[in-house]
């Protein structure tokens, strides 16, 4: 037992204060795992995108229409992240592509360790190891997912027309950490006050390197640019 405090945790510990200089990111473990994931995805011959948005911005619908429209020109695999339920994975599975549902059980974001697990599960699915494009659909949340690198190559942030144009200003991290910003549900523009050019300019002010697209998965408006972008990033 320790003479100084009577504790019995480690008998040989000392009570001299000690200052330890750490200088390590709290995200170091996640970043290291994300790096492994990226290497794993590249070994599979695929390119990965991480889709981030609020709940209900149309990530899953965009994905369904993308799978339909892209046909045989790209082999797509999907990792779905949600707090609960298999519903999104069922919708994607119905389109005939390999898909894994990750349920976080309450956590507001996916992290690299979950994706590591998801990659191994996806490879066990039929054709899950023969992909050109891996799409990770993050938990619907415009805040927390922006902090966690999953090992993706490109990050795509969506805002739908009904949500309003002020999202880049209010949730900057999702926009400063992304490469693509999609304004979705443009078929609803006649019914909502959403100045597309203002939203585009505001997002570019935050991140001048951002590629901004506006599209509607329902009407097909702007879809060509999105499909061309996906084919471009997957070109070997």
């Amino acid at each position: 037992m320790c003479d100084s405090c009577g504790c019995d945790i480690t008998p040989d510990h000392s009570h001299d204060p000690k200052i330890v200089e750490v200088h390590q990111s709290l995200l170091a473990a996640n970043t290291a795992m994300a790096k492994k994931n990226r290497a794993h995805i590249e070994k599979m011959g695929a390119v990965a995108i991480n889709m981030i948005s609020s709940p209900g911005s149309g990530k899953t619908t965009l994905l369904e229409k993308t799978i339909e429209a892209i046909g045989d020109s790209l082999r797509i695999g999907v990792i779905e992240g949600d707090i609960e339920t298999e519903r999104d994975a069922e919708r994607i599975r119905a389109k005939g592509v390999p898909v894994i549902q990750l349920t976080t059980g309450g956590a507001c974001h996916l992290d690299a360790a979950q994706i590591h697990k998801g990659l191994h599960l996806l490879e066990k699915e039929p054709d899950g190891d023969k992909l050109d494009l891996l799409v990770i659909e993050n938990v619907g949340n415009l805040v927390c997912p922006a902090t966690f690198d999953l090992g993706e190559h490109h990050r795509v942030v969506l805002v739908s027309v009904p949500e309003g144009p002020d999202k880049p200003a209010k949730y900057p991290k999702a926009f400063t950490s992304s490469q693509v910003f999609i304004i979705s549900k443009t078929d609803l523009l006649p019914y909502f006050d959403f100045p597309v050019e203002e939203a585009r300019a505001e997002a570019l002010q935050l991140n001048p390197k951002l590629l901004v697209m506006d599209l509607s998965a329902t009407s097909g408006q702007g879809f060509e640019q999105w499909l061309d972008y996906l084919k471009e990033i997957c070109r070997k």
């Binding site: 001299d16 204060p17 000690k18 330890v20 750490v22 200088h23 390590q24 990111s25 709290l26 950490s177």
Partner: peptide, 12 residues
């Protein structure tokens, strides 16, 4: 400006 760094810990 996006770092979350543990800099220093004082322990006894």
């Amino acid at each position: 400006g996006d770092d979350i760094i543990l800099r220093q810990v004082q322990m006894e």
